[in-house]
Computed example of a mutant assay.
Amino acid sequence: MQCVDKPGYLVIEYIEESQGSMLSNTWFDNEHHTSERRKNYFHSLTRILLSITKTPLPSIGSFFIDRNGDLILGNRPLTMEFHELENESITTDIPRHSTYSNVQSYVGEILEMHDNRLHYQPNAVNDLDDCGYQMSALTAMRTVGPLIFNRSLRRGPFIFSLTDMHQSNVFVDDEWNITCLIDLEWACSKPIEMVHPPYWLTNKGVDEIELDEYSIRREEFMAALKSEEGKLKSPQARPYVLSEVMEESWTSGAFWYSLALSSPTGLFHNFYHHIHPLFSNKGTVKLGNVMPFYWVRSAGKFVGKKLEDKKLYDKNLIEAFSIDGSSTE
C-alpha cells in the first residue's frame, strides 16, 4: 500500500499480494504465537503505518469516492462503534458532510455522542451509583481533554488512520508478515495523537487492559516502529516523527483518552483507571458526589428518568421472552 500526493486528494494505490490467512486464526494459538512471528507482524504493521501517515491531511474526516475514482476527504469521521449506536436509533448529531479543522471540536462532538448514548439508550445505566459514575466520567473528560492533548498539534497534522484493524481484518503469511488488510470502510483522517498500537495486543478488551502487561507488548511495537523509521531514506522530509508523537501520547495520557473516546462502553473504565490517576490519587468517591451535577441541568430528575427507563426496559425484555406471561428458560 502506498500514498500518492495530489492537491486536495489522498489516493491509495493497492498492490496485489497473496492474501495468506487471517491473523486471528493463529494469534490465540500458543504454539504458533511466538515472539519472532510477533516481531514480524509489528515490523509489517509499522511499515504500513509509516506509509499511510506520511501525507498530512487538511482536516479530520472520512473519505468518499468521487466521479473520477479518487478518494476525497469530505465526510464525517464515523467509526463502526458509533455507527452501531445509530443502528439503535441513538443519534450522533454529526451531519454527513462535516469535517473538523482542530482536535478540540472533534473531541467535543465525540463526547456528545457518548452523552447521547447515556441520554437515549434505555438500558444505559444499571442503578443510581452507575448513573452517577457515568455522568461524572463524561463531565471530567471534557475538563481534562485540553490538558492531555498537545496544544501545538491541535490544528494538525491529521493523518489517515485504520480504526477497525482487529486480528480478523489482517491477513498474514505463515511467519506473520502482513499480506493484506480488509474492511477499510471505517478508515478515516484523525489527529496524529490518536494513532497508537492495537489495543488488543494482550488479548484484552478496550476496557480490560492492564497497564503493566500492555506496556511490555507496546515496547515491542515501539522498537519495531523506531527500527523502521531508521530505514527511511529521507526522514527529515516528514513533518514529524511518528514514534516521538506516540511516546508523548503514552506519557500524556492521550493514548488512554483516545481509547476511551473510541468505545461507548469502555470510556468509563479507561477514565477511572488510566486518566483520573494522572490528575489525582484521592480515589473517585468525591468525584462522584460533585461532577454529575455539572453534566446536565436538573441532574436528579435525569437520574430518576434513567432508572425508570431501565425498569421499563427490563419489563419489556421479560415480556419479549415470555409466552402467555410465563418466562421461558
Rank of each mutant, 00 (worst) to 15 (best):
V4N: 11
L10A: 06
I12K: 03
Y14W: 14
I15P: 09
M22Q: 15
S24E: 11
S24Y: 08
N30W: 09
E31L: 11
R37A: 03
R38P: 04
H43C: 12
S44W: 01
L50Q: 01
S51K: 10
P56Y: 02
L57Y: 05
P58L: 04
I60P: 01
S62C: 14
R76I: 12
M80L: 13
E81Q: 13
E81M: 12
E84W: 11
E86Q: 13
S89H: 15
T91Q: 10
H97F: 15
S98C: 10
S98K: 06
I110Y: 03
I110H: 01
R117K: 12
L118H: 01
H119V: 09
N123I: 07
N126E: 08
L128Y: 14
D129F: 14
C131G: 06
G132W: 02
Y133F: 13
Q134K: 13
M135G: 02
G145L: 04
P157L: 07
I159R: 00
T163K: 05
S168W: 08
S168C: 11
S168L: 08
V170M: 09
D173K: 00
D174T: 14
W176K: 00
L181H: 10
I182G: 07
E185K: 15
S189W: 04
E193P: 08
Y199S: 05
K204S: 12
V206M: 13
L211K: 14
D212V: 10
D212Y: 11
Y214N: 04
I216Y: 10
R217N: 09
S227I: 02
K233W: 13
A237T: 12
R238S: 11
P239V: 01
E244S: 14
E248G: 08
S252E: 06
S252M: 04
G253Q: 03
A254W: 02
W256A: 05
S263G: 07
I275P: 02
L278E: 02
V285G: 05
G288F: 06
N289M: 09
M291Y: 09
M291G: 04
M291Q: 04
Y294C: 09
W295P: 05
V303N: 00
K305C: 02
K306Y: 04
D314M: 12
K315H: 13
K315L: 15
E319Y: 07
E319F: 08
A320G: 09
I323A: 11
D324N: 15
D324E: 14
